[in-house]
Design a protein around this nucleic acid. Structure first.
Lengths: 227, 227
DNA sequence: ACAAATTTAGACAGCCTTGTCCAATTCGTC
DNA sequence: GACGAATTGGACAAGGCTGTCTAAATTTGT
């Protein structure tokens, strides 16, 4: 009874298959136990591989950790940009299209295994590896936000939205769409499909209430804060 | 050169003063190093106390950890409810009052030492202590949100806001007001006063754009999702 | 100033973990 | 089927950490 690992026997796998198997198991164990609490025996057991193989592939624990984070970062970024590519640039039903986009974003990038693991590792060990996570920060959130901001700017330009600062709008969009999932994330859980949909629906509706093109009641909200 | 500890000598302190000194140091070390990575020698050194004293007061490491979490939970909850008590029930300038409230909330509950530490411990070790964190969850976010929701409902009832579901509005308010601080939180940092103000300002403006009482352009947004 | 309680430093056993080494076995490939 | 590379399991030393114990020093209450 390890944890929730597959059966007790593993089919034979290639050299490269073992490498990814080790990295996957390591990601899981590092997340569950923390860097210091993760031990190589557990990782190798969970990967269905001998301890020596772990050392053969990755040298030492710190090296393995770095490999895990780079791997997760890469996969997460790929998922994020693939999803952003599906942004509704020419919406037919703006609300429905944005909700569907938000659900895709959540399911493919934020709630999935890689997203949850990467977030937890960053929060837990980010301060210990400044250069590693600075790298992530530039390639991940930095590009994500500006890519998303560009899409919202285009929607605004096309007359679908009324936006002051697209960067602010992009961050607020993500914050709103995840507003109801925070505690679940805190405890490392995975929200149900229904929770994701509800949070996205509520978030997008509020977002559109604020940013849908409309006559403003007073001269209010002329421009949002920039500096 | 330990970390950022006071001078190398400590003035004499009472029995009780040592207990809190130990808990404080333990909170800091648990956050920095994780539960498994935290060692009692480091905690006692940081508390300016001998290792044996730590054991005298708290028995063992796990006990100490629980004491730390309970302590942080208690202080955070106190801060949160004190701050919610200052909610602008009869606003003169709704936007300014809500911004000021959001800044207080951030500064006194979310960005301060206790808030950051508690969040990190929950994220890192929450799954390992289900009952402990279930307790926190009920007393903390559970009550926080419904208390805040009640305040927003009152504002809506008084005609200052147009809100569908006060619980959703309360969560979205917090999400919006923190939207720009997420990465800083991720890496365990403390946002500057200026960042807090900017995030609160942008968040409240968007919140009010969505929920300020106004004529709706179309028959849209009749009711927000509940279930 | 005295007695009790607390704190301290240090030593200590027991345990766990990392990382290395090695001989035997299995795997991929020709 | 045979060869070289990869994998395995097991043993191993070195080091770290927890938690206990002690005797001496210090603090606290009276």
């Amino acid at each position: 009874m390890k944890h929730g690992v597959s059966p007790d026997t593993f089919p034979p796998r290639s050299h490269e298959a073992k490498r990814v198997s080790v990295v996957d198991a390591a990601a899981s164990v590092f997340c569950r136990e923390g860097y210091a609490g993760a031990n190589i025996d557990l990782i190798s057991a969970e990967a269905g591989v001998s301890r020596q193989t772990v050392y053969n592939h990755h040298g030492d624990k710190e090296n393995l950790f770095v490999a895990v984070v780079r791997d997760l970062t890469e996969r997460c970024n790929a998922g994020i940009f693939a999803t952003i590519a599906s942004f509704p640039d020419q919406p037919t039903d703006l609300e429905a299209d944005l909700i569907a986009f938000a659900v895709r974003m959540n399911r493919n990038c934020i709630c999935n295994r890689d997203g949850r693991f990467l977030r937890k590792l960053i929060q837990a060990e980010g301060e210990r590896y400044p250069e590693l996570f600075a790298e992530w920060r530039e390639q991940g959130p930095g590009r994500t936000w500006s890519a998303l901001a560009a899409r919202f700017a285009r929607l605004a330009f096309a007359g679908h939205l009324s936006i002051g600062d697209p960067d602010v709008a992009a961050r607020q969009f993500l914050a709103l769409v995840n507003a109801e999932l925070q505690i679940t994330f805190m405890l490392g859980g995975t929200p149900t499909e229904e929770e994701v949909l509800r949070s996205a629906t509520n978030g997008v509706r509020t977002f559109l209430s604020a940013f849908a093109r409309k006559k403003l009641p007073a001269g209010k909200q002329a421009a949002l804060v920039h500096a």
